[in-house]
Design a protein around this nucleic acid. Structure first.
Lengths: 186, 186
DNA sequence: AGGTACACGTGATGC
DNA sequence: TGCATCACGTGTACC
């Protein structure tokens, strides 16, 4: 074997190239980590690890926050036929056959697992209990509720409920279900 | 010099320790990068770099999206007005400089002397008191109120108030006044 | 001086 | 067998 066999030289060159590649990536990595004081290899790795962890945390936090701030809402405004009533303007669908004069307005909004339900209706004895019962029969657990009298004949019900993990319902379906359910006792 | 001088041995041990530290950090880093096929040092660095870049992109995108959705939800003022008004009231026009990211929805309805105000907004310290105070400064006497937490960051305020005999306000003016008033502390 | 950090060449190992 | 990767000891430079 010659002292400088071609194989040995290739080996040296290959290793040199490998080191060069690693060195380049260290530089590239250190360029991505902000506030890097030590350009030490160990420090670059350590700070990159810390930075990466806190980035992951931030992404997770932001994604959760996104879920919660993304609220879809649907409003169904019925025909209001009471005397001193205000707006008959707005909204979407007309439920042709429904002659319900008690519930004027059902609104729901869903955010993550939370559901907010607003009902504007005439005062009716036992209506609140039925509403809450109906809500809970829809696999929603009521976590809070409020009933405010509005004038002599109207009231405003606000319910916050939570969905189970298994079902994810759209707002429209939810409102439809609730409306159909409420029609039963009117 | 002895063949195995203590200095040389220290050098060897120090270098050995340094390599060990680097090796550990490589392992730690590779544990953070998901979907890592090659456990190659160069591949670990390369994939970590790619992953870190896309994490940064994602954070930036999410942060932008957060601000956009909060701004976008401003536009969500209810259409509550008397007839014979513009029917395109859902789109709130320019409140250019004021960045209202807290209140997502204000709704009001008037019946005789009674006023029902619904506010859907982010949780803010002292916000409820300010809202009630502002309402009362508009010549409305609060007769009932309810604050329901909705998820971690949102809340739903419902207020029933009564107007004095002297003034009769339209729903639109009321909502506009309240919205302008709420802008002060946001 | 003593400590730290790096690049280099080299032998070994695994596909 | 080549080819790629690794750990090791060593020389060296910088504070």
């Amino acid at each position: 074997m010659r002292r400088t066999s071609s194989h040995a030289q290739d080996h040296i060159m290959a290793e040199r190239k490998r080191r060069e590649k690693l060195s380049q990536r260290f530089i590239a990595l250190s360029a991505l980590v902000p506030g890097l004081k030590k350009m030490d290899k160990a420090s670059v790795l350590g700070d990159a690890i810390k930075y990466l962890k806190q980035l992951q945390e931030r992404v997770k936090s932001l994604e959760e926050q996104m879920k919660e701030t993304t609220v879809e809402s649907v409003v169904f405004i019925k025909k209001s036929q009471l005397s001193a009533d205000d707006e008959t303007s707005s909204c979407d669908e007309n439920f042709d056959g429904c002659r319900e004069d008690a519930v004027r307005d059902i609104e729901a909004r869903v955010s993550d697992k939370n559901v907010l339900i607003r009902i504007h209706c005439k005062k009716q004895k036992g209506f609140v209990a039925k509403v809450l019962g109906e809500i809970e029969e829809h696999h929603l657990s009521v976590v809070n509720s409020s009933v405010l009298p509005f004038g002599k004949h109207a009231m405003d019900i606000t319910v916050v409920a939570q969905m189970g993990d298994e079902l994810q319902v759209t707002v429209k379906d939810l409102v439809n279900n609730l409306r159909l359910a409420f029609l039963k006792f009117m």
